[in-house]
Nucleic acid binder design. Structure first.
Length: 319
DNA sequence: TACATTCCCCGCCAGT
DNA sequence: ATACTGGCGGGGAATG
């Protein structure tokens, strides 16, 4: 059986980052970890010589005719969510879909697939910043802005920028299984299967440490002392504010609420402990400030759709 | 699973 | 007038 052909659509003003993700996963020689070879073709609907958004130029070897042989076609992004795609590209995507090719829209590439009508009635995702305009422009598509990627029967879409890597690893997994994919992921130094949505990346507070700002000091302090119990009142007192002012200023600064922020910090710490230690789930629960292991499991499941021990196994690449 | 209790979020409004 | 503060309390979620 010949190597599967993966086609990637380059375009004028493409971001090198977006282009590089599918090229890294499917264009590199992964034989050292046992992965099969792919036939990677980068093609363009807008002429062979293209500018990138980073200023340097690239030249593709193929035009749209290369899509006729592709088993999988990846649209790695688009210039923005408002700009229509070339009709010839849309037609080529429809034709490929009709003959059974797998289609992938990474990041804003989902707009192109939707414009081609290939997402009608299906579930899809896109960059969270564009999710709303996507939903308005394509009401016939079920947008889920809270996941890293969606695989709806041969048509895949992924969320913002780095989620493209999760999506491409998922594709790789379909081709050669979890074990080899985990080895590739390890080589790339990313978690083999990042769980959970992109919601956690939307307003994850990196508290701007304004000088003399009492509040950001508290944030740092609390993040360093997650194992102990915190209540609104103790934190507010520490910040020398009333409870009401504290909650209000907190929301202003971080974009989230005190309870949610504490929870996400605790979950992140629990993840780190699961990844880097052999402590029991019980120990990790109390170490991360959860009232009990049950409580940790509950929150872990809703946030990451998996259990702590499963997450640990997955991370270590035995899954 | 059902329940009681505690805790949290936030609109509202009066005070500074 | 304008901006910020903080007490109150309903609705709701988390906890044990």
């Amino acid at each position: 059986m010949s190597a599967p052909t993966i086609a990637v659509i380059a375009f004028d003003q493409i971001s090198p980052f977006h282009l590089s993700i599918p090229c890294t996963v499917f264009g590199q020689d992964w034989s050292r970890v046992g992965a099969p070879a792919f036939q990677l073709v980068v093609c363009s609907a807008e002429g062979r010589k293209l500018a990138t958004s980073a200023g340097f130029r690239i030249e593709t070897a193929h035009g749209l005719e290369a899509l006729q042989q592709a088993d999988t076609i990846i649209v790695p992004s688009w210039r923005n969510g408002d700009e229509p795609a070339p009709p010839a590209l849309l037609a080529a995507l429809r034709a490929a879909h009709a003959r059974g090719a797998r289609l992938v829209g990474l990041c804003l590439g989902s707009f192109v697939l939707a414009e081609a009508g290939l997402l009608d009635g299906k579930s899809a995702t896109t960059h969270w910043l564009w999710a709303q305009s996507f939903a308005q422009r394509f009401p016939q598509v079920h947008v889920n802005p809270n996941v890293l990627y969606v695989d709806d029967g041969g048509v895949l879409t992924s969320a913002g920028t780095a989620a493209a890597l999760d999506c491409c690893l998922h594709l790789l997994r379909l081709h050669c299984g979890a074990e080899i994919t985990n080895r590739v992921a390890r080589y790339l130094v990313v978690p083999p299967h990042r769980q959970g949505g992109q919601a956690q990346y939307i307003e994850q507070p990196l508290p701007a440490s304004a000088n003399g700002d009492r509040l950001s000091e508290i944030l740092h302090w609390a993040a360093q002392h997650l194992q102990q119990a915190h209540t609104l009142d103790t934190l507010a007192e520490r910040a020398l504010m009333s409870r009401r002012t504290f909650t209000r200023r907190f929301k202003q600064l971080t974009g989230t609420t005190v309870g949610k922020w504490l929870l996400s910090q605790r979950l992140a710490l629990a993840q780190r402990l699961l990844e880097s230690t052999d402590q029991s789930v019980d120990l990790i629960a109390s170490g991360a400030g959860f009232g009990s292991a049950v409580s940790l499991r509950q929150h872990f499941a809703t946030a990451f759709r998996t259990s702590p021990s499963h997450y640990r196994r997955e991370f270590r690449g035995i899954g």
